[in-house]
Design a protein around this nucleic acid. Structure first.
Length: 270
DNA sequence: CGCACCCCCTGCCGGC
DNA sequence: TGCCGGCAGGGGGTGC
């Protein structure tokens, strides 16, 4: 579910709701996420104040007042929602964080592919090993060109490799490649410099536009206040197999690429 | 090192 | 109507 635009939308909402809040109690209802929560997870958070909320790729970083970082990855179905402690709990509400202002941060994740870690920032970033931020100047034509030349894999696989560029998943890889007019299944090393230039530009345009529309909600993505995004209404290719290309009316095709669905227009991306 | 394949887990949808 | 297989926005491990 959540890729960079969704995580950034969640971050912005939580920043407004959680900054400066002290955690008074943590209730763990299900510790078995992608990796089990640390045994002392609740103890490490209780009493801490949230001083800043950052994003790196698809990870949220909650900066705590003891210089440690609480890192959250939402996996496919994770949601962080601020609500009232009186609100009824749902199945798959795994972690409850009670705040000084009498509100509650609720972690909901049916598939439990999410991840939470607490520790020193440098240890955690070594552990995640993320590549450059796609919206930073570090993600440029020279950088991506070198990466395309150095590997024998498709361009879509390269864009989705978090060690190369952090935050792009299946939705945005497909949308970026449509706008760059590059077919997802092409081998990255065969691309022209012009095509790589278009991909870098399209990456920044698509991700910024998706953030502006508060991300994409296919089924269960919600931001920190429980609201869906609307970028799914602006997809050109993702989830549109058989529907007409918005640019040329050719039916959109789907092929499996690296085990995941690749969507493209056979006319625009040729 | 890359990569094909499998796993993790639940929910939903379409076909039979 | 109900069951079953396939698929889903995430990542990681293994064996070749």
């Amino acid at each position: 579910m959540p890729e960079l635009p969704e995580v950034e939308t969640v971050r912005r909402g939580l920043e407004r709701l959680l900054l400066g809040q002290t955690i008074v109690r943590v209730e763990i209802r299900e510790p078995r996420l992608r990796r089990p929560l640390a045994p002392d997870f609740a103890g490490l958070l209780t009493g801490r104040t949230i001083e800043q909320i950052k994003r790196r790729g698809k990870y949220l970083h909650f900066g705590l007042d003891n210089q440690q970082v609480w890192l959250v990855h939402l996996g496919m179905t994770g949601q962080l929602i601020v609500d009232e402690p009186a609100a009824a709990l749902l199945p798959h509400d795994h972690i409850l964080v009670f705040l000084q202002n009498a509100r509650r941060l609720r972690y909901h994740d049916p598939r439990r592919f999410g991840l939470m870690l607490i520790g020193e920032e440098q240890d955690l970033s070594a552990c995640t090993g993320l590549g450059v931020e796609p919206l930073s100047r570090d993600f440029n034509v020279r950088y991506l060109w070198a990466k395309t030349q150095a590997t024998q894999r498709t361009i879509k696989d390269l864009l989705m490799n978090q060690r190369v560029v952090a935050g792009i998943g299946n939705i945005y890889a497909n949308e970026i490649l449509f706008r760059a007019r590059v077919r997802p299944t092409w081998m990255s090393a065969t691309l022209s410099l012009d095509a790589v230039t278009r991909i870098v530009k399209a990456t920044k345009v698509v991700l910024r536009e998706a953030i502006r529309y508060r991300g994409s909600s296919i089924s269960d993505y919600r931001d920190g206040e429980g609201n869906p995004g609307s970028f799914q209404d602006r997809f050109y290719v993702y989830n549109r197999e058989g529907q007409c290309c918005r640019r040329c009316h050719t039916p959109i095709r789907r092929e499996t690429c690296g085990g995941r669905s690749a969507y493209f227009c056979p006319t625009c991306q040729c």
